[in-house]
Design a protein around this nucleic acid. Structure first.
Lengths: 159, 159
DNA sequence: ATCATTGCAAACTATTTGCACTCCG
DNA sequence: CGGAGTGCAAATAGTTTGCAATGAT
């Protein structure tokens, strides 16, 4: 999908929720799209946006980023030093999804969000290891299952 | 291992690096040991420490926590809101270790640190799912392998 | 005219640092 | 004495918020 298409799609997404695609938001989006492979901090986004649209405020960038996280266009990842970084969210996620496996009822719940970006960044920086894919399963119990009783049914409700 | 034993062990650990076990540090340690299953923030640790040792400063708690992270007694985990929480580090980790699998040379590197505490906290809060164990493999390539050449050897050096 | 959006500055929060003071070997 | 450790207050850094001004429909 090219830039114009994506922007149009996100414009619709915004409109659905009663938001507008302002110039500031559009420039911010373009910067993010031009850095899909990076993990930009808010400050970095701000600097890059300023190049194309000098009269923008930092707060606006923060507000836009927050909005885009809400719309699931980008993902917010907090690094070890406590600074937030933002990653473009690829729609066709070629990563395997994470799975929750209930050890009591065997129920399997797939989670398609990617929670490992921060860890993968760390692997890159500290181990020189570039992650191509990952597998993550959690084995445990839903609280409703631990309380016993109608486990099968309750578990299915959660998924 | 009981409290006195652990404290003694950590005292030795400190001494090895030229640090002392001051009253402030000991009280902080006790608080952390009494909350091994929790994920306390620095502020929470501070409050709990103050109960037992009122004349302590927040900065001291921060400095102690930093020290204990360095000594690998506790782990620092940054939550989604950017606030750091500290977890006691169990020596006999019953979790499977994380693994890096190099897709080029097949090298397997085990990592025994636990990087999933934050995610498991999220699962607990958002999904009502208590994690008992997990499996995490990363598939990717070491940079030295991507550059080609003496892959086997380089990879082994990293582990 | 209304209402979302903006820029600016001020506020906020978690964390770190500078510094004088203390304590122990 | 000398250096590690401390408490306090001030500084820092990232982020959020209040508010008056703007601008699109």
């Amino acid at each position: 999908m090219n830039t114009a298409e994506s922007i149009g799609k996100i414009k619709r997404l915004l409109a659905e929720q009663g938001y507008k695609l302002t110039p500031q938001r559009e420039v911010t989006l373009q910067v993010l799209m031009d850095h899909k492979e990076d993990h930009l901090s808010a400050e970095e986004v701000y600097m890059l946006v300023k190049n194309r649209f000098p009269y923008i405020g930092l707060a606006t960038v923060y507000r836009t980023l927050e909005l885009l996280v809400e719309l699931k266009v980008i993902v917010k990842v907090i690094f070890k030093d406590g600074v937030a970084h933002y990653d473009w969210r690829s729609e066709d996620n070629n990563h395997l999804s994470h799975r929750l496996v209930c050890s009591r009822c065997g129920h399997l719940h797939k989670i398609s969000e990617d929670w490992l970006l921060e860890i993968e960044e760390k692997l890159y920086q500290e181990y020189g290891f570039r992650v191509l894919d990952h597998r993550l399963d959690f084995i445990g119990q839903y609280l409703v299952c631990q309380r016993g009783g109608h486990c099968q049914r309750e578990c299915k409700e959660v998924s």
